[in-house]
Every structure is written in C-alpha cells, then in structure tokens.
C-alpha cells in the first residue's frame, strides 16, 4: 500500500496577504535575502517576535526613526541573536504563565546571516538549541559578510572569491569547504531542521510553517542569493537560487525528529555545477580541474544525503527502533 507522507495542500493564493516586513526598506535591488525574510514573515504571521542579528537585514530595515517591521522586533548585537531570542522566549513564557500578558501563543524567531549563525553566533546558537527553547532560528546564508563588504565566512563555498579570500595569481579564492550547518544543527538532536531557498517559495513557506507548529527548537538554513556579493546581475537572484538547488550545491531537505526527507523539488539527476558557476563573477576565475574537484565533492555530499534519507526516513523508523 502506498502511503502519502506529509501531505500538504499548497497554492500561491493561500499565502498570507499581510506584509509584516513593509516595503520601503533599503535592501539592494534584486536581493534574494530580503525576499526570503518577507516570505518568512508571511508564513509566521503576526503572533511572532523576531530577534535579529547585526547584518544586512538589520540595517536595511531599522534605520532610526523608521522601521520596516510590523511584528515586534529586537536587535541587540551580532553574535548573540539566539541568546536574545531564548531570553525573549523565557520572558514571554514566564509572563504568560503568571497571567501578566494575554494568553496567546507567540513564536519567537531568531534570524542572522551566515556570519551571525555559523561563525560569531555559533556558540549562542548551539546553547539556545541545546537548551530546548520553543523558538525557530533562521540562517539567511548569503555565503559571506556582505554587510561589511563581501568578506569570507565559514559559509563561503570553496573557490568563491571574496574581499578577504580573493582570487589572485596564486590563489583561487576560498580554500575551505563550506561548513554544513544544517547537519550540525541536526546533530543537536532538535525536533526540526530544514534547508530552504526563496527560489522555491512554497517549499520555504511550508518549512517555516512546520517549524512554527513544532514545540521546541527548530532550525532553518535559508540559501539567500546576493547578486551584489556574488557578482551576478540583479535580475538573476531567483534563477541562481534554482541552479544552486538543481546542481546539488544547496540540496533542499528536512530532518524531522532525526528522520531525513529530501524535498520533492530536488531533481532526479543533478545538473553540472558549472551551470551554477557560470552566472556568478565570484567563481569566474575557477579552472576546469578546480571545478571538477568541487563537482566530486558535491556528488559525494549529495550521495551521503540520499543514503541518510534511505536509512533514516519515516518508513524505516520502526526498523531502526527494532535494531536499537
């Protein structure tokens, strides 16, 4: 018997019409990240409190005395977003329990860029996830410190040229593999981890909604196209995001209670990575052999993901329990 797993009905017309991140903010034209934040807000709805890290999304949205936020929003510093969010969550929980505020359920969301998540914000995030706060943390990963001028982070992919790991006569840009943040979060044993990309808005919204419905910590790693930092035309953000997914550079998957599920948007056969590199200036310097090395790594990582899905998917959970 075929069992339809995770059946959801989705159509663009069902998307929340409310704009909780208003227009008039100062993001670059063609910014993929701010689009993702807008979609996230639609999925979260108004009973949300957002704690944001220092970064692009903070400065473009909160220029005093204006604000683009129609949900309660707090920014404190760069590295502590998850800790701030955990404090908001603890505070609201206590106040609600003691009857000091009205009895509505409010989801607390922490958001940061790749630097604020994977580098300087790593410790605070790990702590908050481990403590089990009822919160979502969303990493808007544009693969470098874009707000300060395109410096490399641990989210920058191998071979990308940045202002602190530039391609030069004796260097091919970033010399390290991108940190696999979603897997690190899955290793925390939290109830829900997912990767997403605003080029797949329905998938992204569904994942935010699922995270919202889960009691406890969840983590969403959102691939956030940055035409400015990636040296690509500003009208290409969506197509570049699609190429990242179609080439397996950024596979879409989710890990729910330890069980893997690769998103149906993933193609049966991956496109070659050079298709993805083509439109971005940050990869322009890469030579054939360097692209081949990267291609091998993508193939390996994607195979590992598919194997994990095979071993650790909902249908196999029972068997695993029996083995254990």
């Amino acid at each position: 018997m075929n069992i339809v797993e995770n059946f959801d009905l989705f159509a663009p017309k069902l998307i929340n019409k409310q704009e909780l991140l208003s227009s008039g903010h100062r993001a670059c034209s063609g910014c993929g990240e701010v689009l993702a934040v807008r979609l996230m807000c639609k999925a979260l709805g108004e009973n949300t409190v957002i704690a944001a890290a220092t970064g692009c999304m903070e400065i473009i949205s909160s220029m005093f005395p204006t604000t683009a936020w129609r949900v309660p929003w707090i920014h404190v510093a760069f590295e502590n977003t998850a800790a701030v969010a955990s404090g908001v969550e603890a505070g609201l929980k206590a106040l609600r329990k003691k009857g000091k505020i009205d009895d509505r359920y409010i989801k607390v969301v922490g958001m940061a860029g790749d630097g604020g998540t994977m580098d300087i914000g790593f410790q605070a995030l790990s702590g908050a996830m481990e403590r089990g706060h009822d919160m979502i943390f969303v990493c808007f990963d544009n693969e470098a410190y874009m707000n300060t001028g395109i410096q490399r982070s641990s989210g920058t992919p191998m071979g990308a040229s940045t202002t602190t790991a530039p391609a030069g006569k004796v260097s091919s840009g970033q010399k390290t593999w991108k940190k696999n943040m979603a897997e690190i979060m899955a290793a925390h044993g939290i109830p829900y981890v997912a990767t997403a990309c605003p080029s797949y808005p329905l998938d992204f919204i569904r994942k935010i909604e699922k995270a919202k419905s889960i009691k406890g910590p969840s983590y969403i790693h959102c691939f956030s196209m940055c035409p400015t930092g990636w040296r690509s035309p500003s009208n290409t953000a969506i197509s570049v995001g699609r190429l990242a997914v179609e080439t397996g550079v950024f596979p879409l998957f989710e890990v729910e209670h330890g069980l893997y599920r690769v998103s149906p948007d993933m193609p049966k056969k991956l496109r070659p990575v050079k298709d993805y590199f083509k439109s971005q200036g940050r990869f322009r310097h890469l030579k054939e052999d360097e692209i081949d090395t990267i291609q091998d790594r993508i193939n390996l990582e994607y195979k590992k993901l598919l194997e994990k899905e095979k071993c650790l998917k909902t249908g196999n959970a029972q068997k695993i329990t029996e083995v254990g």
């Binding site: 409190v49 704690a51 707090i74 404190v76 510093a77 590295e79 502590n80 998850a82 800790a83 701030v84 969010a85 955990s86 404090g87 908001v88 969550e89 603890a90 505070g91 609201l92 206590a94 106040l95 410790q123 605070a124 790990s126 702590g127 908050a128 481990e130 403590r131």
Partner: peptide, 17 residues
C-alpha cells in the same frame, strides 16, 4: 546559558519582553 555573554543577551531579551 552557555556563557555570560548569553546571560546578558538573554536578560536583555526577557526584559525587552
């Protein structure tokens, strides 16, 4: 919390709430 930095961050968040 996992550090004093997070202790102060968390009380800032809670106080803000």
């Amino acid at each position: 919390v996992e550090s004093e930095h997070s202790a102060m961050s968390a009380v800032i968040g809670a106080s803000g709430a």
